[in-house]
Amino acid sequence: MSEGLIKNIKDLAGEHNLASGTSICAGCGALETVKLFCDILGKNTVFVNAAGCMTLLAIYPFTPFSGSWLYTAMASASAGAQGIRDALDILIKKGRLSAAEDLKVIVLTGDGSAYGMGLSATSAAIDRCLDFYYLCYNNEGYGNTGHQDSAATPYGARTATSSSGAGFIGRKKDLFSIWAAHKPAYLATVIAAEPMDFARKVETAMKIKGPKMFISLAPCPTGWHYEPHQTVSIGKLAVQTGIWPLKEYKDGKVTHTKVIKEKLPVEEYLKLQGRFEHLFTPEKNLVLINEIQSSVDQYWIDI
């Protein structure tokens, strides 16, 4: 399946590049994403982290990373990455760093920053063809502060700021299309619950120079209200129901990397999560469930 070093899922097992002992929630889908990303990318990395849940990875004097980490404000992680890339390039040019010691620069942000506050700085970084990786762990809300709604919150979900009635009334922003319109070198949606698809995409990106963008759906037990052990099952269901399409953008073309022939009904995904509980009790809200289903169906018809 993959032409890279990771040929089957067992190649992802063993020692990991992200250490244990972080103060991230048990069963965190975002941590799973970052762990996988670090394993595929290797140890020569520097992470530029916008404020968010993953900020808690490195609380002085502790860090799980095997490389450097820089903390920025929510809106400016991509700008921070530009500074680091420039510094590395200058060091290499002056001969103070060998090309073999070069570091991969990765912007790590949640959806609050990627879909909202940080969009402008990211747009500019893609414009400048900055050679960097962008990893957005999308837990569909401002998870670090109690899960208020963000521009990535799905229609109908309950959050701390849309806690009554039908849940969130907005529509999830299509960040993939927004970023694709910038024509970056590489862009993909991924999920840690599908590690082989994830690995193939990161390995593809590693061969390309320029902006390499990843949006990873990160199931969040705390904000989505489900038991931590369900993180992987819910992630798989997001793909099997067609709610989270796995796709990539390369050379001006969008390709779906996992097309599910017999998609499961969205209900299977929604009913496991407390944030959608109001769709099922006290009585089933068929209108809203059908609305969500038909928007998913329409997506797959349109592509």
Binding site: A19, S23, Y60, P61, F62, T63, S66, W69
Partner: peptide, 10 residues
């Protein structure tokens, strides 16, 4: 932080 992977202390 000048050492890597110190989080294992937690």
């Amino acid at each position: 932080i000048r050492t890597v992977s110190t989080s294992v202390k937690n």
